[in-house]
C-alpha cells in the first residue's frame, strides 16, 4: 500500500477540461456561499465544521465491497445535505477535498475542480433532491429518516461516479477506443456497491444524531411554506 489515492489523480483528465471544471466548481461554490449564508447561524456554523471533519475521518475508512480486491469509502454529500443543508453541505465536502489535495497529496491539485464537481456538487445536489422528495412522502419516523438517508446516499454515489464518466468523455487522456459505455458500466456497478456502504453509514449517522439532538438535523427542521404565508400565526405543529 504505497499510495493511498481516493480521488482523480493528475494526468487522468487533460488540462483544458480540468480548467473548465475548476471554473464551474468555483462558480457553484460561490453560489453556495451566498445561499448558504442564509442557513449559517451561530448553531449551524460549528455543526458544519464538525460535518467536514467527520467526513474527512470517515473517508479514510475504506471498506471492502463484494467485488474482491476493490474497496469503497464515503463521499459524504448525502450526509452533509441531511445535517447542514445542500448549500453548506456542498461547501463541507469541498473543504474536505481541498484539505486532501493540498495537504495529503490525494486528488491532483489540477484535478480539484473535477473532484469537487463530482463529489461536492453533483453528489450533494442529487442527494438533496431525493431527500426533499422522500421526506415529503415517507413518515416522519426514524425509519423514514433512515430510508431517506440510505436511498439518497446510494443514488448520490452513482451520480457522482457518472460525473467522472462525463469528464472522461470530454477530456480523458487515454483513448478508450469508443468503449466509454464500458467505463460507465464499470463505474456504475462498482459505485452501486459502494453506495450500499455509503447508505448504511449515512443512515446510521443521521438517525443517531436525530436521536441525540434532532434540532441539529437540518432536514428535520420545519420546512418553510411553499407559498409565502400571510402574517397569521402558524396553525401547524411548527416548533
Amino acid at each position: 500500500m504505497d499510495t493511498l489515492a481516493m480521488h482523480i489523480s493528475n494526468g487522468i483528465i487533460d488540462g483544458p477540461v480540468a480548467a473548465i471544471f475548476a471554473a464551474f466548481a468555483l462558480a457553484v461554490l460561490t453560489l453556495c456561499v451566498l445561499r448558504g449564508r442564509r442557513d449559517l447561524d451561530d448553531r449551524l456554523a460549528p455543526m458544519a465544521g464538525l460535518v467536514a471533519a467527520f467526513i474527512f475521518a470517515v473517508q479514510m475508512l475504506n471498506f471492502p465491497i463484494f467485488t474482491a480486491g476493490v474497496s469503497g469509502h464515503l463521499l459524504g454529500g448525502a450526509l452533509a445535505a441531511l445535517l447542514v443543508g445542500p448549500w453548506v453541505g456542498a461547501l463541507c465536502v469541498a473543504v474536505v477535498l481541498v484539505v486532501q489535495a493540498l495537504v495529503f497529496g490525494d486528488g491532483g491539485v489540477a484535478m480539484l475542480g473535477l473532484n469537487i464537481t463530482n463529489m461536492a456538487i453533483l453528489g450533494t445536489a442529487a442527494a438533496y433532491l431525493l431527500i426533499a422528495l422522500l421526506l415529503r412522502v415517507l413518515p416522519r419516523t426514524p425509519a423514514g429518516l433512515g430510508v431517506t438517508a440510505f436511498v439518497s446516499a446510494l443514488v448520490s454515489v452513482v451520480v457522482a461516479s457518472q460525473g467522472f464518466v462525463l469528464q472522461y468523455w470530454l477530456g480523458g487522456t487515454v483513448d478508450l477506443g469508443g468503449n466509454l459505455a464500458g467505463l460507465a458500466g464499470t463505474m456504475a456497478g462498482v459505485h452501486l456497491l459502494i453506495g450500499i456502504g455509503e447508505g448504511l453509514i449515512t443512515a446510521t449517522t443521521v438517525v443517531t444524531v436525530a436521536k441525540v439532538r434532532p434540532d441539529l438535523v437540518y432536514a428535520l427542521r420545519a420546512r418553510k411554506p411553499v407559498v409565502p404565508a400571510p402574517a397569521v400565526p402558524a396553525t401547524g405543529g411548527v416548533r
Binding site: 449564508r37 449559517l40 464538525l50 471533519a53 484539505v99
Partner: peptide, 19 residues
C-alpha cells in the same frame, strides 16, 4: 491532524461567513 485541520479550516470559514 487531518480531522483537526479540516475542523479548523471548515469551522473557521463557516464561522466567519455566518449570519
Amino acid at each position: 491532524i487531518g480531522v483537526l485541520l479540516t475542523f479548523a479550516l471548515g469551522g473557521g470559514l463557516f464561522w466567519l461567513a455566518r449570519r
